[in-house]
Amino acid sequence: MTGAEPPEGWPNTGERTWFRSDAPAERWLLSGYSRDSRERTILLELIARVVFPTVLVFSLYLLFAGHYRSGGGFSGGLVAGQAFVLRYLAGGRLDDSSTVSMRPPVLIGTGLTIAVITGLVPVPFGGVVLESASFTFAVPVLGEIKIVSSLFLDVGVYLLIIGVVLDLLRTLGSGIEADIAEREGGRR
């Protein structure tokens, strides 16, 4: 169901609500759906929708290619973060569970834990802390694949950066908006 304004009884805060079966699962992709009563830029939203998956794939590429060409965990994570920023700018608040399945602090914690574990893993195998090793193995179609253990450190970095950017959006973005809304609403 689409329309210029939400139907009656449509709540202003975010929660799961009814919609018809042919509507997309991603609520923010619904045209005409506007949670806050503010202006919408169709062009920005369209481009955001189109570009979002591509940017995520690009960030993954940067992550894996970092060891050999420009890139790396930091750049990859930041690019992925920018994708979410774009989505936020276009679509509004991101703090309901339908849009982001993982809470940012969990992402941050996971990234940090992966990084620390990558450092500690060599120790039981007789190596030094944070020692790197490379593994080569043959895969039938793709040929020889070489994976370096420092890739996992990069993965930890990647996840953490995404978590940080999401947290930034959650606090500075949605958090501040909620503050403004409370102020204006006069609710305490």
Binding site: G71, G73, L160
Partner: peptide
């Protein structure tokens, strides 16, 4: 380090500990 990108090699291998440290700084700051 099996890397052709020296900058990345420094960040995740030679001086990986700095990276881990700065990660925790980012986490704490967030």
């Amino acid at each position: 380090t099996s890397a052709t990108n020296v900058v990345n090699a420094i960040i995740v291998d030679f001086r990986a500990f700095d990276t881990v440290g700065e990660l925790s700084v980012l986490a704490v700051t967030a």
